[in-house]
Nucleic acid binder design. Sequence first.
RNA 1: GGCCCCAUCAUCUAGAGGCCUAGGAUACCGGGCUUUCAUCCCGGACACACGGGUUCGAAUCCCGUUGGGGUCACCA
Length: 467
Amino acid sequence: MVRTRIAPSPTGEDIHIGNLYTAYINWVFAKKYDGKFIVRIEDTDRSRLVAGAEDKILSSLKAFGIEADEDVLKGGEFEPYRQSERLEIYKKHVLELVDKEKAYYCTCTQDRLDFIRAKMQKEKILPRYDKHCLSKQEEVKKEISEGKKYVIRLNVPVDEIVEFEDVIRGVISINTSSLDDQVLLKSDGFPTYHLAVVIDDHLMEISHVIRAEEWISSTPKHILLYQAFEWDLPIFAHVPILRNPDKSKLSKRKNPVWASWYLEEGFLPQAVLNYLSLMGWSHPEEKDIFDTEEFINTFTLERISPVGPVFDIKKLTWMNGQYIMRLTDEDLKTKILDFFKNENLDEEIVAKSTPLIKERIKTLKDYLNIAKFLFQKPTEYEISLMDKKNIIAQILRKVENIDDFSAKNIGDCLQPLAVKLEVSNSDFFMTLRVVMSGKKITPPLSESMEILGKDECLERLRAAILD
RNA sequence: GGCCCCAUCAUCUAGAGGCCUAGGAUACCGGGCUUUCAUCCCGGACACACGGGUUCGAAUCCCGUUGGGGUCACCA
């Protein structure tokens, strides 16, 4: 049984786009093998907890269609799915490790820790805990019974090789001498990530740990824990970290990183997911555009490349445009209406204009940029109409006499006027375009005028003359 | 800095020894279509980091160098 998970921390505004990426890979992998996808909330850092973050993460995941089979809302066989509610479990297990002498109590103060760290740094040796408390456990236990604050540390063996296999990168081996005696249980009684992740992944029967590359260097600690507990290892796959254009880890300083930002900018979930699937992975037939179902069918972990890809919003934007073009008119109308629900747009106008703007917008947000004039009169003109008054007056007279106000007929009636006035087509229609919309770039003119209707067009022509 | 991971156009990538005078996509530049813009079509410029091996033959395998990234917390 394939069981995958993501373990977001409610410490930010929303789910990070990089986490959305790993979530998608995990979800797709589970779907491909008829497995289960679990969302586990890792809220063990009480100091960085952000109120509302958990809800936001869950709702964003849902907005992108990545639904968990087991999570804090749905529950499941292995609940609770919030780590702060599993404290007893961690405690019990870590004590087991102490019994086995794989872990030990430590009552060192932060001051002492800071001191030895500084000293080691000065001596240019790797700063890490010096196992000071390990040799005097009885004494330490006595201190603890007297109420002294303590942590429990992993007793990392000296100078051993820890090896594990990563599906994407092959065998990775690290000497334990580069590992610290990691704190497993913090003094507030909460586990650290390293303890909690191993226990939960085991207890929740996670078969494949698919997570970001930044976890590679702490995986040996996890291996040591699995060995200490005498548990079987899951399969590890470390997917690449998404990068800023300067190749550093994707960060909010340099890029929009919150998943919901993309939705707010008018990107379609499917387009974002499709783009994300191309990060470190490519379709065997070199396709760019494909839906989730096809991704599930063709995806393999082995095909993920270990190279960290730059997140290129330009290509995402192109892809989003492609998705918008492929939407049915009805579907696009609904999406635009929903996107601009606060604007209370006239549904009929949106419906009529949708086919006109379909190939012209890259995001839903672009819609009003290009079509706003259909809902309201221009407030200014991008081109001066001062020396065009005569032309406009002639157009006005002509338009007054058009009875069949269809796009085709409007064009047919106006075209001869351009010839008669000896004005080039582009000049003539640009003038009219600006009169109608105020802008130089618009959807097709005759069609737009048809949507506006004869009366509205006449009003705009008169307004332009008076301007 | 130690350890670990990585290395094909600006970017995402194809490529698993001969099919590669390296293919596609985005972006960019030019042209066509066109009542603006967009779509669409055609064309262009642009890459195997470097140095050693192995081999009849290397973008592909090995080693080194360089470069980039990650990680070294009672954060995840």
